[in-house]
Design a protein around this nucleic acid. Structure first.
Length: 413
RNA sequence: CGGGGUGUGGCCCAGUUGGUCUAAGGCGUCUGGUUUGGGACCAGAAGAUCGAGAGUUCGAAUCUCUCCACCCCGACCA
């Protein structure tokens, strides 16, 4: 991408109506645009990051045989009345069309996926399976806050699984847990993300959250480093012990909830009549699980964790581009390097604008691509470019002919 | 939803005991010139229903009322 063609620009000053770091940094660098409290548009750079996060999640869902679907954003009132949530759910955006039929904008999709599954589940032979989607969710939070961390409209991956019995659900639940750990590792969040015991509702003692330690978080968790698990404050009782090993050596930390997995049991399959015939011909309710991760919240979380005083430092796997190529008055040579890198399959943001070096460096720091490649009179004198990692302070001169190999070698954190 | 705060060109803001405010400054933008390794410099230019509505007054960005929006703290978060 030639930066001269990019319609967004970075801005020098912090937006006055945002206090959270992730929103400030993302707006300044031109990744998102604020429309209202908790309502943001994703601009070219931001969309690329969001797509990369979603793609990692998609790959890991497919790897555990999740089947991608896309459900409706409009959820009819009757569906939500079947589960009792039309009245109980206070964050619903409710609306109606000219036909007077009432709907809610989807805040979650048990009420759509359950009747869907009912149409295809007839026999035990139809189980188990998992269906997921990556879709915008709507929740009218009384207080949206913290930029992308708690929005009224946000992107969510929600997976729903259907099983013949509790044992099969339990087994798949472990599979999903492992997949989630892989996702966080690939996103660069593995080290600071903990499987966390949280309140479970009516069908299991606990649900599990994935909590990423960050001062920007809303939750308070108690971490057992030995077991690499944590307990949410909402269920910690007076004994304050690790549920895995019983240790009382727990570290209190603020954290961002970056995922949540639930065993739903028959909570939805009963009211929606999602039943199957077992081997003996007897009809039984299916057993369900649901598993969520929000790519947009992940994006905000990454910014909270990966930045310095100058701007964002994206992990390589989700950076909008791998390389930010800066031409300092040498577009002739830089054009060729740009074309070569593109041909090698390397994603490049190419600053071909007629601006001062300082502005280009500042933009590189704000936008936060992993590598900076500078082409200038100085570097060209030795048929080289200057290469520097965003997180590094030292740069080095690299022969132009060796650049693609160097970038590939450095790829993948 | 309770409490606190803030709304002034695209962005950040000064001004708010009512009176040359015909709204200042910085950034950005446009024109010309000089620059060219950390948001460089000079000259000129354009750009504002002062959040909205109602009111008080000879006169309102400034005072009163209502509403709206955004931020922060708390509650809430299936």
């Amino acid at each position: 991408m030639r930066q001269s063609k990019l319609f967004t620009k970075t801005v020098k000053e912090l937006p006055k109506d945002e206090a959270s770091y992730n929103a400030q940094a993302l707006i300044r660098a031109g990744f998102i645009d604020k429309v209202g409290a908790g309502i943001y548009s994703y601009l070219p750079l931001g969309k690329r990051v969001l797509d990369k996060i979603s793609q990692i999640i998609r790959e890991e869902m497919n790897a555990i045989d999740g089947q991608e679907i896309l459900m409706t954003a409009l959820v009819p009132k009757e569906n939500l009345e079947s589960s009792g949530r039309w009245a109980a759910f206070d964050v619903l955006f409710r609306l109606s069309g000219s036909d007077k039929r009432e709907y809610a904008l989807g805040a979650t999709h048990e009420e759509i996926v359950s009747p869907l599954a009912k149409k295809f589940i007839l026999s035990y032979k139809d189980l188990p399976f998992g269906a997921y989607q990556i879709q915008t969710k709507f929740r009218n939070e009384k207080r949206a806050k913290a930029g992308l961390l708690r929005g009224r409209e946000f992107l969510m991956k929600d997976l729903y699984s259907f099983h013949a019995d509790q044992a099969d659900l339990d087994s798949y639940y472990e599979t999903v847990t492992a997949a989630y750990h892989k996702i966080y590792a690939r996103l660069g969040l593995g080290e600071m993300t903990y499987l966390t015991y949280a309140s479970g509702g009516s069908f299991s003692k606990y649900s599990h959250e994935f909590q990423t330690v960050s001062a920007a978080g809303e939750d308070l968790i108690y971490i057992c480093e030995k077991c690499r698990v944590a307990v949410n404050r909402e269920i910690i009782d007076e004994q304050k012990a690790c549920p895995a090993c019983g240790s009382r050596e727990l570290a209190e930390k603020k954290a961002i909830e970056v995922g949540n997995i639930f065993k739903l049991g028959t909570k939805f399959s009963e009211p929606f009549g999602v039943r199957y015939k077992d081997r003996t011909g007897e009809e039984r309710p299916t057993v369900m699980g649901c598993y969520g991760i929000g790519p947009s919240r992940i994006m905000g979380t990454l910014v909270e964790i990966y930045h310095d005083e100058k701007g964002i430092i994206w992990p390589a796997n989700v950076a909008p581009y791998r390389v930010h190529l800066l031409s300092l008055g040498e577009n002739g040579a830089a054009d060729k390097i740009y074309a070569d890198l593109i041909n090698q399959g390397i994603e490049v943001l190419y600053d071909d604008r007629d601006l001062s070096a300082g502005e280009k460096f500042a933009d590189f720091d704000l936008i936060g691509c992993p590598y900076r490649v500078v082409v200038s009179k100085k570097t060209l004198a030795s048929e080289s470019v200057e290469l520097k990692g965003r997180a590094e302070t030292a740069s080095s001169l690299i022969k132009i002919s060796e650049l693609p190999a160097r970038l590939e070698a450095k790829a993948g954190i």
